[in-house]
Design a protein around this nucleic acid. Structure first.
Lengths: 300, 300
DNA sequence: TGGATCGATAAATTTTATTTATGATATAAG
DNA sequence: CTTATATCATAAATAAAATTTATCGATCCA
């Protein structure tokens, strides 16, 4: 059993081709072929079903590859651990945030990050929540700002802040003079939502079903910007989180009586991350700087 | 980076000696020395602090060894997966149970197990809960019967059964004619408990503190058998789970009005276990055979 | 059908790990 | 205070392993 062979298997799954896999691993194609066969012998199991026209992984092969990926990732984490041992505050740090947060939140923290950790080379990645979680688990991201809750055993998180949703309407809308409306009033209206995959969409739908708001406009905006555009054209209204509202004063925002729905943002990272201590420190920092409470929750 | 080297590191930590570690790995001492040095070069980190009188692991070394253990264990799980792929119902299966359950529970299920899975070579291990969890996580056990709750991310479980605790007293005791007593009455008495480390002790203490029973006899029996002996000598009373009571009719058992404390037993295994499917089946089986409800809870 | 591509195989080669032998240092016993 | 016996490190020789180059047979597509 051999880590290099695991990498071969993983590359093979990725490319579906011996030649390409070998290329990625910077070895010749026979080297890869032989090692794959060897590991099959060693395990006493057929991992690939070969035919003259190609090959595919057996169920057992798929299971082995899935586990091999975890193993290789952990080894890479050992290597990173050693690399960063002498200075955990140096090197590249990749942070993610989902699209309805990133453009409104990153500008707030970027200066603080750069000042506090000058030796870190910070990469900011904007992706939908699902992709972020995936990349986090795959070790491609060090941490991500995500809306609670995220159910992943391998991740832990600290809460950063909570914010309310307001009802965003055009300044020419009938509600433009009002500060508050009731959930009942909202229930009579139709809401524009983002397209599938945005966590904000899920949060809004949650709130609607809990508040008995059934109907939502069957048109889905593909980005927050589009959505705000449509609202300002008086074509729609929507639930808008506070940080987005603050950056878009061209609209009017109506609060929901008794408090609207809220979203809580947490910073998530792998429990096994080599940057774990740094992340804990960062959560502490961000709470001091931008947090609303004296106490903040860590979920480790 | 190399799995064999990880094994060397682990053996080195285990024995604290190059020679012994090499022996365990069936290689010569220089082979081990050289590989350790090589991995240090490769990682660019000193793992061992060497001195003429010996060596110890650096903080970084300790971290690396801890992670290496996980990696090696997962690789072993891949090997086991492959071995058992063609017949998951064959080979050795190690099951644990804690001391206040094992002797009373294993006899109930052993026939069923042997009949249902004739190709499995079943090993039963009796240890205190803490040790069982440790051995489970280390991959030395396939599964263990444990009292809920157990907080371990890497484990999952299915509930098997719940049972009530009764107050066990001698047949010559004043309560020997009674069927029920109240928690208040019990509060006036002193309870004998098992020594530290037994989960039953924790459960009893929990109940006592919740029921306002403050005093417990400051003498700790080292086994359930001793405890029952002492009770029958009229020297004490204690909380006894139902399955223990059934096997010891020489005592009298008084129920607590409104129901006494209960313990729920679950079968726990590693989420990554190669026997996962078998375990799910076993939980199902045991519930059909011995479970009290039609529905049983799986916590995956 | 001919050329290109794919993966398997064989032999030669290189790289890597391991053994044997030995050295330097410290500890324990006489 | 010596001597014997541990310990781990080092060096050279050996064994084992992975890798490369070269080649084959099969399929696919024009």
């Amino acid at each position: 059993m051999n880590l290099q062979t695991f990498k071969y298997l993983i590359a093979l799954e990725k490319h579906g081709s011996f030649r390409l896999a070998a290329e990625e691993c910077f070895v010749s194609q026979p080297a890869l072929s032989i090692q794959i066969k060897k590991v099959e012998d060693e395990l006493g199991v057929v991992l690939l079903e070969r035919s003259p026209k190609g090959f595919f992984f057996t169920p057992c092969g798929k299971e082995v590859v899935a586990r091999a990926k975890k193993v290789v990732q952990q080894v890479e984490e050992i290597e990173a651990l050693a690399r960063n041992w002498h200075n955990p505050y140096s090197g590249p740090l990749s942070l993610g945030a989902f699209p309805t947060l990133a453009p409104y939140f990153f500008p707030h923290i970027i200066d603080h990050l750069v000042d506090s950790y000058p030796q870190l080379q910070i990469n900011l990645i904007e992706e939908k929540t699902g992709i972020l979680v995936q990349r986090l688990l795959a070790g491609e991201l060090d941490a991500a700002f995500l809306a609670l809750p995220i159910k992943e055993d391998d991740l832990e998180y600290g809460e950063i802040f909570s914010e309310e949703f307001f009802v965003g309407v055009s300044k020419r809308h009938a509600w433009a003079e009002r500060d508050q409306i009731t959930a009942q009033e909202l229930a009579a209206e139709q809401l524009l939502l983002l397209e599938d995959g945005h966590c904000l969409r899920g949060q809004a739908l949650d709130y609607c079903s809990r508040s008995g708001i059934g109907e939502v406009l069957n048109f889905r905006a593909s980005s927050m910007e589009t959505l705000l555009q449509m609202i300002s054209m008086q074509r729609a209204m929507s639930l808008v989180p506070q940080c987005v509202a603050e950056k878009n004063p061209q609209l009017h925002y109506v609060a929901l009586e008794g408090g609207g729905p809220t979203r809580t943002i947490g910073l998530y990272w792998r429990k096994s991350s080599v940057r774990r201590d740094l992340m804990l420190e960062l959560v502490d920092d961000l709470n001091r700087e931008y947090g609303q409470k004296d106490e903040f929750a860590l979920h480790l």
